[in-house]
Design a protein around this nucleic acid. Structure first.
Lengths: 149, 149
DNA sequence: AGTATTCATATCACCTTACTAGGGATTGAA
DNA sequence: TTCAATCCCTAGTAAGGTGATATGAATACT
């Protein structure tokens, strides 16, 4: 029941872009890969998914690279995970398909309720943390003083 | 990110045993399979895991079968899931292994914290529902009046 | 003895994961 | 123009998980 490593790489990459935030600077795939420990070619695909999800934007050509397309406060961890794991990344309910429409006995419905509640808890946890929250946590852990009021 | 069908089958089977609870009666695999819609031979293995986890006890030979080893109030949905999916069924953190010991940068630690919180939310949801809760829900849904005070 | 049933393994086809490799096309700076 | 980089596509692989099915042994009721 684990998320795949793509989620971890995607979050590390997004966090890396948030931390390197020279206002309009971009970071190369290879640099992000080095800093995050992700295989470069693999990360290329991951960042591609983030771009198609509107989380990252890229500039091509020499001196190109990637940057966040949104302020970190508007990117939730859940968004990043959904971007790389697909639309039902947070569906944990067993069985790949829709339940047979009428076929729901009382037990089936009781379990359906259980899974639904659990999915909500999962989503709430992942959507309750923004990239900004993660940045703040990293900076606190790094002993960087916070001068904001 | 789904749980496997074994979790669904296991929960249905456990719920079925709780509902059929003639005090010391046992239910055959084939009957549980018919009522839950699980493939009989596959269910046999699933129930085996529940037995080894101490959730179910079985009697062999003719007229043998299965029953719950504990009162439904003491069996949590999370216990059933862990029994069939393995000890780290509720670990969602990407990457199969322990993180490389010293290698934790501040970002890694921030993400570690995120995953830990999410795992806790997952476990809380699944451990917050007992078989007794599910039985009650099924009986309410079936329009069975509740005569308890 | 005969039969019903659990219990334990082994096997299977299929899919997903986490890569690695290679290349071609496009874009933009120097 | 040349080079650096993103972008996009294909393909392959080793390992493991999923959802079963098959076979047979152990056990216990009749």
């Amino acid at each position: 029941m684990r998320f795949s490593l793509k989620s971890e790489y995607a979050l590390r990459a997004a966090l890396d872009l948030a931390l390197q935030a020279s206002p309009s600077g971009v970071a190369r795939t290879s640099d992000v890969a080095r800093r995050t420990g992700a295989p470069a070619k693999f990360l290329e695909a991951v960042i591609g998914q983030l771009r198609r999800a509107g989380i990252v934007e890229s500039e091509r050509g020499a001196r190109g690279g990637h940057r966040l397309a949104l302020p970190p406060s508007r990117i939730r961890a859940g968004d990043v995970v959904r971007a790389v794991e697909g639309p039902d990344a947070l569906s944990i309910r067993p069985g790949r398909q829709r339940p047979p429409p009428g076929a729901a006995g009382a037990s089936t419905r009781a379990l359906h309720h259980l899974w639904t509640g659990t999915e909500r808890a999962l989503a709430a946890s992942l959507d309750g943390v923004s990239l900004e929250d993660l940045v703040r946590r990293v900076q606190e852990a790094s002993g960087v003083p916070d001068f904001s009021i």
